[in-house]
Amino acid sequence: MTSPLLLAQGLRKRLGERLLWHGISIDLRARERLALVGPAGCGKTLLLRQLAWLDPPDGGQVLLRGQPPQAWTLPRYRAQVAYLAQRPPVFAGTVAQNLAEPWTYRCHQGRSPQPERLLAWLAQLGRDPTFLGQAAGLLSGGETQLLALLRLLQLDPVVLLLDEPSASLDGATTLKLEALLMQWLRGGERALILTSHDHDQVERCCNRRLELGP
């Protein structure tokens, strides 16, 4: 019997008069991979944002290891329940500066980056260390997505919330990224939730699905 890592109960979202989704309950345990599926505009992104507590809820609650986000304090909660936007922006400067930025935040004080692990991940994704010196603003869409994933992954989150993580990647890199995600998942008590338009990706990566109705 494992207890849930992330537990959501009775979540609802209103958009103006319309109830986008309601009665959403998620019980996510270690090693689980949940796919959010549904037609465009059904609120998949908003649900991921809700789980990351980026928006005020219209109802319901979310618990990480039995504690609400406020009990963790929001910065520490979000560092563990890590949301990756579909088109993540980059900070000014190089890839390395982008990777260094989060370590200046108070909630990561007392921890330190692990450069060797980062280089190993880069190699797995088919990128050599010169990638670190590139200007982040000049990366292609796919490389920006890789940077954004590594920027999150290096912080050792517990639950990853991925919004179309490989939308801009070619087939080969997509498979490498999935392999990295699965390896990360085996590294501890971790789980992930993702949205994807790629049915094959959902089949390959996920063991559960949550249908968001129209």
């Binding site: 910065p75 979000r78 936007a85 920027r151």
Partner: peptide
């Protein structure tokens, strides 16, 4: 993005 990376 900063908030998602643990910024206050």
């Amino acid at each position: 993005l900063r908030l998602c990376l643990g910024a206050s």
